[in-house]
Nucleic acid binder design. Sequence first.
RNA 1: UGGGGCGUCGUCAAGCGGUAAGACACAGGAAUUUGGAUCCUGCAUUCGGAGGUUCGAAUCCUCCCGCCCCAGCCA
Length: 563
Amino acid sequence: MTQTDPSLPSDFIRNIIDDDIKTGKHQGRVATRFPPEPNGYPHIGHAKSICLNFGLATQYGGTCNLRLDDTDPSGESMEYVESIVRDVKWLGFDWEDRLYYASDYYEKLYQYALQLIRKGLAYVCDLNADQIREYRGTLTEPGKESPFRNRTVAENLDLFVRMRAGEFADGSRVLRAKIDMGSPNVTMRDPIMYRIKKESHYRTGDAWCIYPMYDFAHCLSDYIEGITHSICTLEFENNRPLYDWFLDQLVEKPRPRQIEFARLNLSYTVMSKRKLLELVETGVVGGWDDPQMPTLSGMRRRGFTPEAIRKFCEKIGVSKNDSLIDMALLENCVRDDLNEKALRVMAVLRPLRVVIDNYPEGEVEMFDCPYHPKNAEMGSRQVPFSRNLFIEREDFMEEPPKKFFRLAPGREVRLRYGYFIRCVGVVKDPATEEVAEVHCTYDPQTRSGFAPDGRKVDATVHWVSAPHAVPVEVRLYDRLFRVPDALSEPGEFTEYLNPKSLEILKDCRLEPSLAAATPGQRFQFERLGYFCPDSGDSPERTPVFNRTVTLRDAWAKIAEKGR
RNA sequence: UGGGGCGUCGUCAAGCGGUAAGACACAGGAAUUUGGAUCCUGCAUUCGGAGGUUCGAAUCCUCCCGCCCCAGCCA
C-alpha cells in the first residue's frame, strides 16, 4: 500500500507529480504557472487555481510563474493586469521576478509558426469566417478540406509574412495548422493559429496586426517558460491533443504536460465572467468590488481574509468531478479565521432605548472590556455606561415565546460586561403601538457580572451607552441568490437574486472605541457577526461598516422551527 | 446517432484488489458573562445500475443509465 502523509492533501494531480518525480521526468523539477487573461477581475474560482498552482510549487520546492495570457487585444487592459497582480499578492503568493506576458513571446511564436509552415504543417487559408465554419463540419459529420490547404511552402511563407506586414484586411486570411479535417475531435480540424486583427494591444500597441490563438500560444508559452505541469480547467480537455500536437512538431522533450481539473462552482452565487459583468452593467451590484460579488476584490471589501480563502481552497480539494461547493463551507472558513483575529466590540444595529430608572442621571462609569474572550494579549478598551442605553430591538419582547431567554417585562438579564437589569415597564409610541422605550432597574451588586446571592440570568445582551454611541451606517450582506444554483433554474438567473443580499441600516450605534476604526481592521460585533469598515465609498464623516458574515445563530434556528 | 470526460453520505472528497478517511452541513448533549467559540456523541453494511472474474471488488472486465464539455478568426 502507498504510505502517504495524511497531513498533506492527496489528489490526482499530486499523484501524477509524485509519479513524475519517481520516474525522473524533468529531473524531479516542478514548474507551474497561473495564466489568466487580463480581461476581467479575478474571482474565487481563480483563487482555486492560484492556490493550486502556487501551492504545488511550494510543496514540491518548485516555482510558479504569473503569466498574463494576453493573446487577444479586444477586452484586455492594464487595469485588469493590475487587479490580477494585486489580488494574487493579497492572497499571499509570490512569483518573485517571474511575471510574464504571452505578448512578450509574440516574436518567438511567430518564428515557431514559420517553422511549422516550412515543415508543410501550416497554411494560409483565404476562407472567410462563415466558410471556415461550414468546412469544419459538425459534431457528427467530418469537415471538408479547404481549397487553400495545399498551397506550397513558399506561397504560405510569402502570404504569412505579408499578413504580419499588414497587407491584408481583418478576417481575410488566417494561418491554420494542417492536421485532419476528418478528426472526430473538432479541435483538430485544421485549427486556426493566427488571425488578422488591426487592433491596438494594451502592451504591444500597433506593433502587431496578427495575433496567435490560445491553442498555439499556450503550449509554446509553457514550453518557453520551462513549465512541467500545465494545469487548466476541464473544458480544455478537448484541446489537449492539439496542445501536444504543436509541441510534438516543434520542440524537444521533455515537454510540459497539460492536466485538467474541475473549475469551482459555489452555491448561491455565479462564477462566469459574462454573468458577473451583466450584474455590474445592469447595476444589480455597485461594481466588480461590490461586497456581494464573488470577486476577490469584492470579498476583500466584504472583510474576507486571504487566510480564510486559502483554507477554503485547500478544503475543497481538487478533482475532475463537476461540483457545486456549499457556500456554508466558505462561510465556515471565514468565521473560523475571524474568530481568532477579530476584536470583540459592541454595536447595536436596530436600537431600542433603555432607561435605567434607578441609575443616577448624569453619572458615567467606564467598564474595562477585553477585546477577545480567549486571548488576553489582544488587550481591552474602556466602554462607558450610563442611565440611557440602547439594546438590540430583537433582544426585547413584550410577550416572549417559549425558549426566548432575553429581556421581557419582569425579567432579568445581564448586560455584557456589566450589571444585571430587570425590565419594569415599557413605553409605547401612541401612534404605532410599538415599544419605544423599555424601563429597567439595575442591581448595583452585580457590577462583576455575577450576583452575590448566586442568582442566575438566562441571557447576556450587548448594549451601548446612548449619549456616547457613534452613529453609523451598516450594510448587511447576505447571499447573492435565494437558490443554491440559479443557473440550473428555469428562466433568467437574475430572477433568483436574493432581495435581501444587501440591507442598509442607517441608524446603528457603536461603542465609542469604534470611532477610530480603519479599513483593514476586522471586528466581531458581539452576538451579531463579523464586520469591517468599508474601504469603498464610505464618506469621511459617516463611517460605513460591512457585515462580512453572521455568527452561527442557534436562536434563529429555534425561532425558525417555532414558526 | 461523433469525440472527450465524470458518477463514493445532503455538499465536497480520500480510496489505486484485502473488507468505506476527513471536512462542511445536520441532529443530540456538556460547559458557557457572545443562544458565538470550545468539547463530546450520532450520521454510507455500502460506492449510478445489472451481470461477471476472484477466497476477497468502490477498486479488474462487460453491458446499461445519468450528467458535463467540444462545431469563436474567445480563453
